[in-house]
Amino acid sequence: MIELRSVSKVFSIPHQKRRTVFDRVFGRGHYTYESFHALRDVSLRLEAGEFLGIVGRNGGGKSTLLRVVAGIYPPTTGTVRVDGAIAPILELGVGFNGALTVRDNVFLYGVLLGVPRRRLDAELAGILSRAGIARFEDARLETLSTGMRSRLAFTVALLAEAPILLVDEALTVGDEAFQAQCLSELRRLRDEARTAILVSHDFTLLRELCPRLVLLDGGRLIADGSPDEVIERYRSA
């Protein structure tokens, strides 16, 4: 279960990105800040086993919401309650390093996502063959194509057995076959009664997977309901 109670997230953005020690010492009070409300008073409750889609324009607060749920950003006000471990797939393959071998990357990315090292060791061959790069174990990751890298990342990410998944636009990469594979994997996870929050601009995908959508605009949650209602609201807004 995930529960957000009137969560707000405010970033104070100095007009210059970061202050310097020099300014701190010699120019006190010199700084002006811009308050940016990425989330305003968002309340949301998600039961275990639910698949929720988030839609909204760029800058609407979708990614910030995922990060707050994942515990990466503490909320400025309000409370977040999450029961169960989270496997965030905010960005596929984050932490990948092109200079390391495919094997090293699998280990690094896997443990970052919470998969025990021993399991990665045992299943390495299977992971690589499912990702379709069985012969490239010792190749440097940078020698693989972008599509191959995404497939590898997705395959590793699926090993994370956490009951809660947070997916941010992860599926817009790769060819048609890869996207179909992602879709069927997500369907399987839904049937296993895992909980997920998906951020996407792909309405077909969201209709397919999520019985419920919410719409974020300017940091506010302005619609919550069936895909048809919410998508119509999004288009008319």
């Binding site: 990060r67 994942a70 515990g71 990466i72 989270i86 965030p88 905010l90 960005e91 984050v94 932490g95 970052l112 996502l113 941010d168």
Partner: peptide, 11 residues
Amino acid sequence: GKAGVLKSIHV
């Protein structure tokens, strides 16, 4: 160097 990781995984 690990900003990307810290911004997308709760480490």
